[in-house]
Computed example of a mutant assay.
Amino acid sequence: MRFTSSRETRHMTFKKTLLAGLALAGIAATAAIGDSHADKAAMQAVKARQATMQLYAFNLGTLGGMAKGEIDYDAEAASAAANNLAALSGMNQMAMWPMGSDSDTLGEATSALPAIWAEGSDIGDHSAALHEAATALASTAGDGLDALRGGIGAVGKECGACHEDYRKPNS
């Protein structure tokens, strides 16, 4: 049996403490990197969906301007804008809406309410109804001002319904 001196014991204790500290620091750093990656991914998703919403607004602005008589009706431009809305609403946007990318988690970076991800959320129904309305509008928007006016209301209704339920007020 070998006996260790108190100096050797202190040295071994120091080494064990140092190794344990380094291991804990490594675990903490890995968690921080993971959190920062998750935050970065969430912010990229928010930026992507905000860009998509800007594209909706741009195309709706053209169609709404025509419907209100603020812009001269142009069948080709109306068809193009309505087709853009149909394409946008039919696009798979799931990657743009990850859990944890809501206003409670990310603050002012987004207006998306946590209710989007809550059990019982009907966000999918709103999305499907918007696509249906946008597709119907795309099939008639180039058929004259009355046809445009007849179809744009359903698109606006679906946009508004989703924003009412799932977007922070005054955003």
Rank of each mutant, 00 (worst) to 15 (best):
R167H: 11
D102E: 09
A38G: 00
A78W: 05
H131Q: 12
S89W: 00
G160V: 09
K15C: 03
L55Y: 06
K15P: 00
N170H: 12
P169M: 05
Y73P: 14
E8Q: 14
A133D: 13
C162T: 01
A41Q: 15
T105I: 13
A77Q: 15
D143Q: 11
T30N: 06
A86M: 04
A48R: 14
S111V: 07
N59Q: 04
H131G: 11
Q50N: 11
I152E: 05
E158M: 08
K40S: 10
M99E: 15
G150A: 06
G100R: 13
S127V: 02
E70H: 15
A147F: 01
T9F: 14
T135R: 07
Q54E: 11
M94A: 15
I71R: 14
A67K: 02
A161K: 05
E76M: 09
A95H: 10
T110L: 03
T9Q: 03
Y166P: 04
G120Y: 04
E108F: 00
K68H: 05
I33E: 05
L145D: 09
A138Y: 08
L24T: 07
K168A: 03
G160L: 03
L137C: 08
G107C: 12
P114L: 06
K16F: 02
S79P: 06
T62F: 07
D143K: 14
F58H: 07
L106H: 08
P114E: 04
G26K: 11
H163G: 02
D74R: 13
K157E: 04
S6H: 15
N84L: 08
